[in-house]
Amino acid sequence: MIRIAIANQKGGVGKTTTAINLATALAASGWRCVLVDLDPQGNASTGLGLKQAERVHSSYDLLLGDASLKDAAIPTMIPNLDIVPATVDLSGAEIELVEYEDRTGRLKAAFDKSDTHWDICLIDCPPSLGLLTINSLVAVDSILVPLQCEFFALEGLSQLLQTVERIQKRFNPNLAIMGVALTMYDRRNRLTDQVADDVRSCLGALVFETVIPRNVRLSEAPSHGLPALVYDHRCSGSEAYMNLARELIGRMPTRELAA
């Protein structure tokens, strides 16, 4: 199972929107996908139409070892796509994890114990560099970074890259950055182009060619409990995420799909 964390400690950059729609696009392409909602806000769970009463087990139970990945995963309305939802319990997980000796490797241990029912796992990380995000980076093969096309996002990116280096040195030497996805791209704004140019000149081929535009439909879809690709598959945001999924598949290591 290929494991990818969708992470950026800056809030409002499109992590959850990216996680939901990439997972949907991959599932539509035939990949058996599980999305782990590791954000205490639980927006990925809500954005896929999951009600609180349906969240019997959660990523909190997964971290604390009270449920396996298979037991915590719930089928969504999207064929081939399951989700491990988040509940409010997750907001206190960082404090509880401090008491564990292996507090940075809890999620990896849960994944290592799971079977290969899925081809790919995406993790929607919280907007911080705390223990939840660190657990994600220790557990995955690679990281996808959504980056808002604004100046302050560049500062956040440098902090994230430093964190990735520390994780590589101490916990996960195989961790790699799969790519940076430029989000909230507005062609009418010159700053958008300047930020995009700066990121591409700095990171080169790590930056995906596809950019995710500012799009009303992307913002509307979660309120209906639907991915944008289902809510309006013809809008510019949906088309962009389909293109991003194709690029992502092209960068994935060659592996046999789950039996």
Rank of each mutant, 00 (worst) to 15 (best):
G65S: 12
S91T: 14
V84P: 00
T87K: 11
A67T: 03
D82Q: 10
M77F: 11
T87S: 13
L97H: 13
I83E: 00
A73G: 06
E99A: 15
G92M: 08
L90A: 04
S91N: 09
S91G: 01
I83R: 01
L63H: 10
L64M: 15
A86I: 02
I78Y: 10
G92D: 10
K70H: 11
I83Y: 01
L81H: 03
E99H: 15
V88L: 12
N80D: 15
T87A: 02
D66T: 13
V98N: 07
I83S: 00
S91A: 15
L63R: 10
I74F: 04
D66P: 02
D71M: 13
A93P: 09
L64V: 08
V88K: 03
I78D: 09
D66M: 14
V98H: 07
A93Q: 06
D66L: 14
N80L: 12
V98Q: 14
E96S: 11
V88T: 09
I95C: 05
K70M: 09
V88P: 00
P75Y: 07
L97E: 09
I95P: 02
L97Q: 13
A93W: 08
E96N: 11
V88Y: 00
D71F: 07
P75V: 05
A86M: 05
K70D: 15
E96L: 13
P79S: 12
G65R: 11
I95D: 13
D66E: 15
P85W: 00
E99D: 15
L63Y: 09
S68Q: 01
A86G: 02
V88A: 11
A86Y: 03
T87I: 08
A73T: 08
I74V: 13
L97M: 15
D89A: 09
T76A: 08
N80R: 14
A73L: 06
I83K: 00
A86V: 05
A67M: 07
L90H: 03
L64K: 09
L63F: 09
E96H: 10
D66I: 00
I83C: 02
I95M: 14
G92C: 03
P75E: 08
L90N: 03
L64A: 05
L81F: 07
A73I: 02
A73M: 04
V84I: 15
G65T: 11
M77P: 00
D82H: 15
V88G: 00
V98E: 14
L81R: 06
L90F: 01
S68H: 02
L81I: 07
L90E: 06
D89L: 13
L69G: 07
I78H: 10
L81M: 06
G92S: 05
V84W: 01
V84E: 00
L90Y: 04
N80E: 14
L63G: 10
E94R: 06
P85G: 07
L64T: 11
M77Q: 14
G92K: 09
D89Y: 09
T87G: 05
T76D: 06
